[in-house]
């Protein structure tokens, strides 16, 4: 029997129960929220289970919601079960003052750079990451540029000397 989203949900609920919340299916992709310290346990379960076999980490990124007090940063995982061709999306939320998340590098080697990129832009502290340093930005940067408080420069500003750039 082919694996469906309903079966995945059923298996996860029977394993983790109340720890997984906010079940949704936006545009057909099964989405749920896990408790912040549960991310590895859920991924390990999805990985190990022969019937589910979510063994491909498609994407890992973060989103900043400044208005959600106490859970400003969200880390989003896209997992793919290639043998069954089913995707799931898992979200966890952490406070911006203490953005600690367990690393997925033990499970997926590919998570290494994805987590470095997420750290680089959002400052998520991946606990246990072998080499959590900036990857795309310069090493000296002392802020996390994708956070919403850093707005893009106003394109109409005139107080800047742009002679060098011919503007």
């Amino acid at each position: 029997m082919a694996l469906t989203k309903e079966i995945v949900k059923e298996r996860l609920v029977s394993q983790f129960g109340e720890q997984l919340t906010e079940w949704e299916e936006p545009y057909g992709l099964l989405t749920f929220r896990a408790a912040a310290d549960m991310n590895l346990k859920v991924m390990q379960f999805l990985y190990d289970d022969e019937g589910l076999a979510f063994r491909f980490l498609t994407d890992l990124t973060a989103v900043h919601f400044p208005d959600r007090k106490g859970e400003e940063l969200s880390v989003v995982y896209h997992l793919h079960s290639l043998t069954n061709n089913v995707r799931v999306r898992m979200k966890i939320y952490v406070p911006i003052e203490k953005p600690d998340v367990f690393t997925a590098t033990q499970l997926f080697s590919g998570a290494n750079w994805m987590e470095r990129e997420t750290y680089d832009f959002y400052g998520i502290n991946f606990i246990g990451h072998p080499n959590l340093i900036r990857i795309l930005n310069v090493d000296e940067m002392d802020y996390f540029p994708m956070r919403k408080e850093y707005e893009l420069e106003d394109p109409t500003r005139i107080d800047k000397d742009d002679e060098m750039f011919g503007r």
Partner: peptide, 20 residues
Amino acid sequence: AGEVYQAVEGGNGELGFYLI
């Protein structure tokens, strides 16, 4: 408002767009 993941087979592999 919505949350979309769309993947296409790019020249190098799965090119995904995660849009909120």
